[in-house]
Design a binder for these strands. Structure first.
Lengths: 334, 334
DNA sequence: CTTGATTGGGTATACGTATGCTCGATATTG
DNA sequence: CAATATCGAGCATACGTATACCCAATCAAG
C-alpha cells in the first residue's frame, strides 16, 4: 500500500505537507502542491480512509437502517441514496435492525459511522434516543418518531389520498375494506387517518371487520386479502397501505379466482416502478421516491459536515402526493 | 466515546491488557479477563473498528460490486449476503462499478475493504486483474472472468435448461426465439450455449432473426419482445436470459394484447420470488440463490481470515438447476 | 537454596493521516 | 538598515487498537 509518506519521499517534502497539499491547504505554496500532486499521481496514491477517519474522528460512511432488505421498496430507496452519497464521496453501509434493542447504536459508534438514515422508525423506537444521546447525526426517512426531533424526508399523503378517494366514490364503492400499515409507524397512522377522513367526507363507511393492519410487506396484503375477500359479502375495494401490500392483495385475489377490478378493486401507495407494468397496472398514490431518498441523504450530510451540526433548526422536507389511476380501480361490483 | 483506555482505568490495568482480555488472549489470567470484561460491560465499551482496522491493517468490511441496484435480482442477493456477513461481524459496503476503469480497486484500497464480491464481472473485466495485483481477496459471484482465477459461487444451467427444453419440445414449439444475456458475461454465454445445445438435441432451430442479446434487465426483455413479437410469424416461445428479462417480455406481450401462453410462451431463469406470484406464474429455471449468495460470502471470508490466504486451491461451488413449470409455458400456438 | 523456566502483565511502538505549534526564510515597513 | 510581519514547511503528536518485546514475580526442579 502506498502511503502519504511514500509520496512525501518522492516529492522531497514531509508527510504532513503531503496531507496539506492534497487537502488544498492555503498555507502551502502552489509550487509545492503541484509537486506533491504529481508525486501522488505517479505513485497512484489515494489517502487511506481508515487513517483519515481515525485522525479526524469521523468517517465518510453513512448507515442505512432497514428491516427487510428483500422488500422491493428498499431497492428503490437504496439505489438513489447510494448514488447521492457517492457524489459526495461517502459510502453506504446497510444495517438491519432486527432487535432494535440498542446494539445498533453501539454498532454505529464502534464502526465509526458518521451518520445514520432511519428508514424503519416506529413511534416507540428507542434508536433515535440512543443516537441522540451519543450525538450521532441522523435523519428520518419516510417515517418519523415524535420523541426525538430530527431532520426528515417524508410524504404528505393528504392530497393524493383525497384524489384517490374521490375516484373511489365516483366509481360507486360503498362497501370498502383496507389493509393499513402498522399502527406504530407514522406512515401507517398518517395514511390511515388520511384515508378515513377522505372516506367520511364522501360518507363512505369503513367497517372495522373489513380492516386489517400489518407490516408493509407482501404477506400482510396476501393474508389480509385471503380473509377479507373470502366472506359472502366481500368489500368491492381494498385500500392498501402501500404498493407491496397491494401486490400481496392482487395475488391473493388472483388465487381466489377474483377479477380485478371486476370483482374487487385494489389501490396502493408509493407507485413503485413495477406498479406501472402492464401486468400489474396498480392504481396508486404516487410521490417522488427517488427525490425523497436523495433528500434524506442531503439532509444528513448537511448535519454531518455542516457548520451548525445539530444546532440548526430541524428541517423536514415534505413530498406531495397525487393519485395515479390505473386498471386496478374500477366501478364497484353491483 | 468510550475507549479501551477508559476500560483499562476502571479495571486498574493497562490499555493493552484490555485489548488482550477482550480478544481472549491465553496469556492473560482468567481473573484479569473477567475484571476487564466487567469494566467493559459497565462502560458499555465496544472496540472501535477504525482503530482496530488501522492497527491490524485490515477491516471487517466487504464490498459488493454491482451495476444496477434497482435490479430486482440484487435485492435477493444483498439480503442473504448481508445476513451471512453479519453473522461473522462483517459489514456490507455497496459499490457500483459504473466505469469499471480501475478506480474501484483504488476505492477498495483507500477505504480499506478486506475483500470484494464481484457480481457483475464481464469476461473482459479489468477489475479482477487490478484486485489481484493489489493482493485484495475477492470472489466471483454468479459470473466469472477466466483471466484471473478466484473462488466462485456459480450456477450450472445444464440440467435445468435440459428439463426446460424437453418441456418446450413436448409442447410442440418449433418456431422459438430467445432474449439472451450479454455475450461478454459467463452467465450469458453459458446459458445461451446450454439452450442452443438442448434445442438442437430436440431438432428445434433457433433462427438468428428471433434472437436478441442485452443486459439482464427489464428493458432488454421489453424491447426485444416488442420487436420479436411484432412480425407476421412471431415465435411461439421466447426463452429469456433471466427472470427480470422475462418480466420485460411478459409486459411487452401484455401491451401487445398477446395471451401468455396462448399466443406466446415465456420462460425465464433464476426463479425470483415474484416469479412464483399468482399474477406472474413464470415458468423458469430455478436454483438456490440464497445459498449461492451465502456461499460467496463464506468463500470470501475464507480467503480473508483464512490461513492460506490466496495460497489455497481455487474453490468453485456450483449450484445445480431444475426446471420449474408454471403458467407461462404452454402448448405452441397452431 | 539457587537457578531456570514459566506465567502475567506492562512498556513501547506501529498503523496512516491530520493539525497545532514552531521556526527559518523571505518580504515588508519605518 | 533594522525590526517586524508573513509565508512556507517541518516537528511533534494525537486518534484507538494491537502486538513484539521486556520485566517482575511465581514456581519447579536440581
Amino acid at each position: 500500500m502506498v502511503t502519504s509518506r511514500d509520496v512525501a519521499r518522492l516529492a522531497g517534502v514531509s508527510q504532513p505537507t503531503v496531507s496539506r497539499a492534497l487537502r488544498d491547504d492555503p498555507k502551502l505554496s502552489a509550487a509545492t502542491k503541484q509537486r506533491v500532486r504529481e508525486a501522488a499521481a505517479t505513485l497512484g496514491y489515494s489517502p487511506n480512509a481508515i487513517g483519515r477517519a481515525l485522525s479526524i474522528g469521523r468517517s465518510t460512511r453513512v448507515g442505512l437502517v432497514v428491516t427487510d432488505l428483500q422488500n422491493q421498496f428498499y431497492a428503490h430507496v437504496i439505489a438513489p441514496m447510494h448514488a447521492e452519497l457517492e457524489k459526495s464521496g461517502f459510502e453506504l453501509v446497510l444495517i438491519t435492525d432486527s432487535s432494535e434493542s440498542g446494539p445498533v447504536a453501539d454498532h454505529v459508534v464502534a464502526n465509526g459511522l458518521c451518520g445514520v438514515i432511519l428508514a424503519t422508525t416506529t413511534v416507540d423506537s428507542v434508536l433515535p434516543v440512543r443516537l441522540h444521546d451519543r450525538g450521532i447525526p441522523f435523519v428520518y426517512f419516510n417515517r418519523v418518531a415524535q420523541s426525538v426531533p430530527a431532520d426528515s424526508a417524508v410524504v404528505d399523503p393528504e392530497l393524493g389520498v383525497r384524489e384517490l378517494v374521490a375516484a373511489v366514490a365516483a366509481y360507486g364503492h360503498r362497501r370498502v375494506g383496507a389493509v393499513f400499515g402498522p399502527r406504530n409507524t407514522s406512515t401507517g397512522e398518517l395514511r390511515e387517518s388520511a384515508v378515513r377522513n377522505a372516506l367520511s367526507d364522501h360518507d363512505i363507511a369503513l367497517a372495522s371487520r373489513n380492516v386489517r393492519h400489518g407490516p408493509f410487506d407482501f404477506d400482510t396484503g396476501y393474508a389480509a386479502a385471503r380473509e377479507l375477500l373470502a366472506g359472502s359479502q366481500p368489500p368491492t375495494l381494498l385500500l392498501c397501505g402501500n404498493d407491496v401490500v397491494a401486490l400481496g392483495v392482487l395475488n391473493a385475489a388472483a388465487e381466489l379466482g377474483l377479477e380485478v377490478p371486476g370483482d374487487v378493486s385494489v389501490v396502493g401507495f408509493d407507485d413503485l416502478p413495477s406498479s406501472g407494468w402492464a401486468l400489474i397496472q396498480l392504481s396508486t398514490v404516487a410521490y417522488d421516491l427517488d427525490a425523497m431518498s436523495r433528500e434524506a441523504v442531503r439532509l444528513l450530510l448537511g448535519r454531518v459536515d455542516g457548520p451548525g451540526g445539530s444546532g440548526a433548526e430541524v428541517k423536514s422536507t415534505v413530498f406531495p402526493t397525487r393519485f395515479v389511476p390505473r386498471r386496478t380501480l374500477g366501478p364497484a361490483k353491483a
